[in-house]
Simulated scan of single mutants.
Amino acid sequence: MKKFAFILFLAVITIIAGCGDKSEGSSGDGSIKIVAAHNQTSPENPYQDGLLKFKEVAEAESDGNIKVEVHAGTIGTEESELVEKLKTGGADVVLVSPGFMTQTGIKEVNLLALPYLFDSYEHWEKVVDGEVGDKMANIINEKSNNDFKLLGYWTAGVRHYYGKKPLQSMEDLEGLTMRTQTSGVVANYWKQTGAIPTSVAWGELYQALQQDVVDSAENAYPYFVQQNHHTTDNGKYITETGHDYTTRFLLVNGNKFDSYTKEQQEIILKAAEASVKAERESLYKQEEEYKQKAIDDGAKVNEIDRQPFIELAKPLQDKAAKEMGVTDLLEKIREMK
């Protein structure tokens, strides 16, 4: 009887040890499940195209041993929810903006959200796909203590003004309430133009524009046209200010990533690279499609001399970069134009 008990004890220890060797989220056959999530609920959103490509490549390259679940706003429509789930294991891959990342204590990332930092998508791609992007990725990983590992840079489009009247000059913004960030350098920039930054949840913005809660807002064509903001009286005039070529971070939990096998890591990185290409292509295509849809629906689009806006932004960029300790990166970005 004692011999049997000892054998049983050894068997239990062996099982426990074996379980400890498996990657978190893996099953007995060596496969793993990855929960990938973004905060947009529209199935037509470029984020969805990007994550579906991630799923396609990860599953194909692993012969189905990596299974990916894609969630479009179903486990969180706020970035704070998604990042919390990334930390606690409720999600494995998420998408967030620089503005939110600063709330985690990584202030340097807000450099990529400064108004008029980029003047074209070509310029933006050279920056994020080059030395500056690599340095920012290292900062994110180090300052988060490996909670966040950057898999790639996505974009949410180039942002423009839309409101109850067109802009012919900066003076037309004087006294207009605008749905935008209400703190930080972005809010300070719009205050200096004469606008009044106002906080409205994204899901409530259509109603806020319709009911005169705000006079205007700013975003990229695929986002505000998909939400029909351009069909309201306070959203029908679109002025192409082009003030932000946006950056979004595709993140994985660094500690969990490190627990995967080398082969699994390589496949995830390959899937991430494919997702970057797919998301950008989708966004670039949708920018033209949704601009035309806005015009077809009766919205009025006009261009504006951006130079006064660019000049206003420069000293704010200098001050913000100095406070973040990334003046060298700001200069590199300017040199790459």
Rank of each mutant, 00 (worst) to 15 (best):
L86R: 02
E263F: 00
I295F: 03
E44W: 01
H243S: 06
I7Q: 13
E174H: 14
E142P: 09
E131V: 13
V186F: 06
Q292A: 14
T77W: 03
Q292W: 01
Q286G: 09
N141E: 15
F118P: 01
G18C: 09
G50Y: 00
E279G: 11
T180D: 13
K277E: 15
D21A: 12
V326N: 01
I333N: 05
K87M: 12
G50K: 01
K67W: 01
E323S: 14
E273R: 15
G175F: 00
K332L: 12
F118V: 05
P98N: 09
T239V: 05
S282T: 07
S97I: 07
D119L: 05
T261W: 11
Y237D: 11
S26V: 05
T177L: 09
K314N: 14
G298C: 05
W154C: 02
L82T: 04
E131S: 15
G157C: 03
G76S: 06
L151K: 10
H38V: 09
S62E: 06
L117D: 05
Y237C: 02
A220C: 10
L329G: 01
V225M: 08
Q227I: 02
A195G: 09
E335H: 05
K126Y: 05
C19I: 11
K291N: 12
F54G: 09
E122F: 03
N219F: 08
L173E: 11
L151D: 08
G133M: 07
A272M: 10
G25A: 05
V93T: 08
G203D: 12
A156E: 14
I310C: 09
K337F: 07
E273F: 09
A91C: 06
V94H: 03
K285R: 15
P115C: 08
E44M: 08
L312I: 09
L151C: 10
V127M: 06
L283M: 15
F309K: 03
F257I: 08
E61Q: 15
V252G: 03
G64M: 04
A17H: 06
S259H: 12
A321G: 04
K314H: 14
P197T: 10
L10W: 09
L167E: 13
F118S: 04
L114E: 07
K55W: 00
A220V: 06
Y206N: 13
Q317E: 14
A36R: 04
G175L: 03
A220S: 15
E288Y: 13
N45R: 01
A36W: 00
W190C: 02
Y116R: 01
N228K: 13
P115I: 07
F309M: 14
L283D: 11
T88Y: 11
E266I: 00
A278Q: 15
Q40H: 11
K33T: 15
Y206D: 14
N141L: 12
G184W: 09
A278E: 15
